[in-house]
Design a protein around this nucleic acid. Structure first.
Length: 480
RNA sequence: GCCCCCAUCGUCUAGUGGCCUAGGACACCACCCUUUCAAGGUGGCGGCACGGGUUCGAAUCCCGUUGGGGGUGCCA
């Protein structure tokens, strides 16, 4: 174990695949919090495969995603990105050292031969056949690690000590038959060379940890401090997979989730902030997070709860900031002042920002366009006998308001109430008629405020259109 | 098959032997408020997987069972 005084170095080693996994985002956050609270360093190391090397935008995507959740390369605690492939020579050199020191040996058995032997001996894997055959390097020969007798104990910050019987670990391959290093070796060599002191990652890596630890020791170094956090799962309790589940952080970003909400939610998976509320800002999270307090069991990534967090964060935004953020979602030719006027009313109705256009679009329809009535909404609002007469009276009342000073939400409400009393209808039902007439839908922002923003001329035009539509549909539906 | 991890409401969790008649949040349901939808308020539904121990006392400690997940490659 590293000494307490040594500067801590946490590494985060994602592989670029075109999208950034929410589970990866969470462990990145764990490493980030720990590095910063201990004055350590967050080392970003990219596992650049052949595919990834041909797509630099994938790497950039990781950097962008990290920046979005607040992990910034402008921060002094941040180091990187480093690229694994840049260190290939060191990986092979380390393998050579392991061979020279007797920690590894060459083997010329093919996969088929290994399987045949295993079957014959009743074993599950490689039986160590070439351990003492004294083979040197050669084409087609792999270099295998000589797993020692005894057992290996992994001291895990989350789970405590985990013991593995070395006899259950087969002599794993370090170098392929073509001389290229295996990932496990490359990973450990990089960790050693970069002076990594703490490895915090998902639980799925725990079973491979004894191998890595043996490599650290064979290479002459003290293994790092480990921490394996529980995996994130879907509703089937399976590890979140890119194919089946919505796991790309960028997708949530693009749908208009707030980074703060995402970060907050992610951190509550497997860990609870100390206060009485689970809605807490990063400053508090960063200083309170402890690996020892992390839960041991897998956590379901619940989008519904994420939605609740996001709604909370949206509602907590200052109005100016809300308008600024929401305005990014609407087309350029939509009037900004008009949007700002209705913004306070949609702020508390929003789950994520990409819903903004759909909530306010009716305010921006061209002033000569026909109205597209949602059939269900129309039938609901105009199904009653009193609907059309009420629409006529409401139209007359609205038309009688002074378009300059009298066109306010209060006046519109009063006018509507006066009409509804004549028809003996409650406001809840009555407002549906002008609402569907003007917006085409049964739900939306508060009606009178919306009409105020829409203005008298356009409101009157839409009311006339709806009246015509109502007459047309009733006469068509009821033959004389 | 072998190895490892895990097990509290549907979900995320609090709980470290008596403060537990098991607390909170999300979801769901009802009611209130109300100009639709939300938001907000009040209330409700709902859980210690099972079986053995240990102990005066177990959600909590031990063993077993069952269930779930992960790993196990000349993939990364």
């Amino acid at each position: 174990m590293p000494t307490e005084s040594a500067p801590r170095r946490y590494r985060f080693a994602p592989s670029p695949t075109g999208s950034f996994h929410v589970g990866g985002a969470r462990t990145a956050l764990h490493n980030w919090a720990l590095a910063r609270q201990n004055g350590g360093t967050f080392v970003l190391r990219i596992e650049d495969t052949d595919a990834a090397r041909n797509r630099p935008e994938w790497t950039q995507g990781i950097i962008d995603a990290l920046a979005w959740i607040g992990i910034s390369d402008a921060d002094p605690h941040f180091e990187g990105p480093h690229f694994q492939s840049a260190n290939a020579a060191a990986h092979v050199a380390a393998a050579q050292r392991l061979f020279d020191s007797g920690h590894a040996y060459y083997c010329d058995l093919t996969a088929d031969e290994i399987q045949a032997r295993a079957k014959e001996l009743g074993l599950s894997g490689y039986d160590g056949y070439s351990r003492d055959r004294g083979l040197g390097p050669g084409p087609g020969r792999v270099l295998r690690f000589r797993v020692p007798e005894g057992s290996t104990t992994v001291h895990d910050q989350v789970r405590g000590d985990v013991q593995f019987d070395n006899s259950t670990i087969e002599d794993f391959v370090l170098l392929r038959g073509n001389g290229t290093p295996m990932f496990l070796l490359a990973n450990v060599v990089d960790d050693v060379e970069m002076g990594i002191t703490h490895v915090v990652r998902a639980e799925e890596h725990l079973p491979n940890t004894p191998k890595q630890q043996m490599l650290w020791t064979a290479l002459g170094h003290e293994p790092p401090s480990w921490g394996h956090v529980p995996v994130l799962v879907n509703e089937q309790r399976k590890k979140l997979s890119k194919r089946r589940d919505k796991v790309a952080l960028e997708q949530y970003r693009d749908e208009g989730y707030l980074a703060d909400a995402m970060v907050n939610y992610l951190m509550t998976l497997g860990w609870t902030p100390p206060g009485e509320s689970e809605i807490v800002d990063w400053v508090e999270i960063e200083q309170a997070f402890r690996l020892e307090d992390v839960t041991h069991s897998p956590a379901f990534f619940d989008v519904k709860k994420l939605d609740a967090f996001n709604g909370d964060y949206i509602r907590a935004m200052p109005l100016d900031a809300f308008i600024e953020r929401a305005s990014r979602e609407i087309p350029d030719d939509w009037d900004r002042d008009r949007f700002a006027a209705i913004a306070p009313h949609i702020q508390e109705r929003l789950v994520h920002f990409d819903e903004v256009p759909g909530k306010v679009d009716f305010l921006f329809w061209p002033f000569d366009a026909p109205i597209d009535y949602d059939p269900d909404s129309w039938n609901k609002a105009f199904g009653a006998e009193w609907a059309l007469p009420l629409l006529r009276d409401v139209s007359a009342a609205y038309g009688g308001l002074d378009g300059d000073s009298g066109w306010t939400a209060e006046a519109l409400k009063a006018a509507t109430e006066a009409v509804m009393e004549i028809h003996g209808v409650k406001l809840g039902k009555a407002q549906a008629v002008p609402r569907v007439a003007v917006t085409g839908r049964a739900v939306g922002p508060p009606l009178f405020e919306s009409l105020e923003v829409l203005g008298q001329p356009e409101t009157m035009r839409r009311l006339r259109l709806a009246t015509d539509h109502a007459i047309g549909s009733t006469s068509a539906g009821r033959p004389e």
